[in-house]
Amino acid sequence: MKLVNYSLKHPFAANRIGFILYDKIVDLHATYEEMIATDTKLGGTHVTSNPDAFYALGSKGIELAQKVERYVKDKGATNSFSREEVILHTPIPNPSKIICIGTNYADHVAEMKGEIPEFPVLFAKFNNALIGPEDTIQKAKLTEKLDYEVELAVVIGERATNVAEADAFDYIAGYTIGNDISARDLQKRTPQWLQGKSLDKSTPVGPWLVTKDEITDPANLTVRSYVNDELRQSSNTENLIFNIPHLISFISNLITLEPGDIILTGTPDGVGLAMDPPKLLHDGDVVRLEIESIGTLTNTVKDER
């Protein structure tokens, strides 16, 4: 299923958790309340309307959401809205951690004149950077070298500590698309990349979370990026140097992962900085990312005022 973090356009309302079915946004909490009113056996459970609280429930929350989806398929949806009535926000608005993987496609390592790493290269982003599928990418005044990076994003579904690779998929909630926007001039001015990777309102994630049962082979997904309809990146997640089970095991042996945490798994070759001449992002550019079995994430770049 496709889980969304949405709000109504009119009247203005708080963000709520929902899902997409038959081109409608179905409110999860309201529909669940309707469902349990007709099935007293479900009376002891609860589904929150708050997206952060929902993901904190882990796999239990997703299992309840899937029950609601089956109910709607059978009975129809009374608590639903057209796409035009809502605003979609980044699926997980306040993850406790956003962990990014650098240099995780060999062709990207080569174009950046780097070396294949022995261990996964980890860096962080923070919530200030997150934006959704209907937001603009803010090009900060500090940077003249803003770049795009299409990435498969893995969302954690269970608390994970010292996870074995063989068990890694048990800890996944689902997948979405991330754009690891990078201020290359800021990124490169020190050995640590953080300052070029976590600028305000710079990192689109979305448009929804696809639960893991819908993507049986995340190691074989086509990933592409376009700028103003020009194809820039085209690869497949089979080309990851460190695959998803390895990343979850590696990270969880260093850092406890919590439900809702996001792992951005790395980007393939074709970034703007590596082109000759470089093709970096400017005010008004439209960046479109596509990942097979997930969908499309499109955002426009806007200069900071």
Score class of each variant (00 low, 15 high):
I87Y: 08
I291W: 00
V47L: 13
T222F: 10
G270C: 03
L199S: 07
L199T: 08
Q233C: 07
G206C: 09
T103R: 12
F81V: 06
I116R: 11
S252G: 05
D200A: 10
V286S: 09
F126A: 11
K188S: 13
N128T: 13
R224V: 03
P204D: 04
H89W: 11
I294G: 13
E111Q: 04
L57K: 15
S59Y: 06
I255V: 15
I248M: 09
S49F: 13
K212G: 04
N299H: 01
G196W: 02
P268M: 02
S234T: 15
I244R: 00
P245N: 01
K141T: 14
K212M: 06
I241S: 04
V163G: 05
S225M: 04
L42V: 08
K139W: 05
Y226H: 07
P93M: 07
G44H: 14
I262T: 02
F250C: 11
D39N: 10
K60M: 13
Y171W: 06
N79F: 14
N220M: 13
D213T: 10
D200T: 13
E214W: 02
R184G: 00
V155G: 00
A124H: 08
K2S: 11
L21S: 07
L297C: 01
E33H: 14
V154Q: 00
I101H: 07
G270K: 01
S235I: 08
P245H: 03
N220E: 12
I36G: 10
L281F: 01
I251G: 11
D276L: 11
P268N: 01
A160L: 02
I20G: 09
D185E: 02
E304C: 12
P207A: 02
G76M: 09
E33C: 15
I101G: 09
K24E: 14
V271I: 12
Y32C: 10
P95C: 04
Y22A: 15
G174R: 00
N162L: 05
T31R: 01
A183V: 05
F242K: 03
A219N: 15
P259A: 07
S202I: 08
S202M: 03
E118V: 14
P277R: 02
Q233K: 06
T300L: 12
K145E: 05
S225W: 04
V163E: 03
L57A: 13
L28A: 04
T143Q: 02
V72N: 06
G43I: 15
D27I: 07
N127F: 06
I177A: 05
S225R: 06
E118N: 14
I98G: 07
N5K: 05
L42R: 08
T78H: 14
E33N: 15
